[in-house]
Computed example of a mutant assay.
Amino acid sequence: MNSNTDQKNKLQTTKILENNEISPGVYVLKFKKIKEFKAGQYVGLTTDLSVTPRLYTIASGINQDEVHILYNLKDDGWLTPRLSEIKPGTELFVTDPEGDFIDDQSPAWWIASGTGIAPFSSMFRSGLKKDKLLIHGGRFAHSFYFEKEFLPELGDNYIRCCSQESGEGLYSGRLTRYLQETSELPKDCRFFLCGSPEMVIEVRDLLILRGVEYNKIVAEIYF
């Protein structure tokens, strides 16, 4: 049995329902849900069985019939330039959901940069809203994906840290500066970090330096 056949046996076939640009260079891909998943998990996607699937965290809620994938266009990537151009009805190959970046009902701070907001969107849309503080870092005012959903529900527990623009309701500066300026960090909750390797390492070290126990930090890196 050749490797392409092995690969095909591990993948489910579906079709794209929608592929919308929601911000410059940032898209939400939607396809019909094939397998149940837990909020915070990821799937592998490819449009070509000869190419290894790329991993993307699911942004939709566990009770939604569609799977939403948030992705940003990377000109030097293989998949995202192709994804950004394909139309509804195009065939897509999807792996089973995996991953243990999972929260529960206990208090937590969710800290994300860029498209690292995806797992927290899934958690939020799955009903995890009480006792959650969401901190999202982005460069521009248009970088806060799904803010129209978060704002009404989370209110003051939704912090948008904007590093290169100012605007109403935005914290002017990087999320690391916001964390440094926060007078006291809670001792009775977990901290979930999702974003670039640089962001995750910097925030993790900052939290530990400020007294957060290492085992209360849960991290997922986006490449």
Rank of each mutant, 00 (worst) to 15 (best):
V28H: 00
G40W: 02
E21F: 07
L83R: 02
I16W: 02
L92I: 07
P88A: 12
H68E: 13
P81A: 10
L92E: 02
T57W: 04
K74N: 09
H68F: 13
N19G: 05
L45P: 02
L45S: 01
G44C: 14
N20T: 15
T46W: 00
T46G: 07
D65S: 14
I86K: 00
V94H: 00
D76T: 12
G25I: 12
S84W: 02
D65F: 06
A39L: 12
E85F: 11
A59Y: 01
Q12G: 13
T57P: 02
E91H: 14
Q12D: 12
E21M: 12
P53H: 06
A39G: 03
P81D: 08
P81Q: 10
T90P: 01
N19H: 03
D65E: 15
T47L: 15
S60P: 02
D48L: 10
G40R: 01
D96V: 10
Y71E: 05
S50M: 15
T13F: 08
G61C: 10
L83N: 00
D6T: 11
D65K: 14
E36P: 15
S50C: 10
K30C: 13
L73W: 05
Y56M: 04
K30R: 15
L49T: 08
R54L: 07
T52L: 15
L17W: 04
I22D: 13
G25M: 07
T57Y: 02
G61I: 05
I62H: 08
E18I: 12
D48A: 13
E66H: 03
Q64H: 12
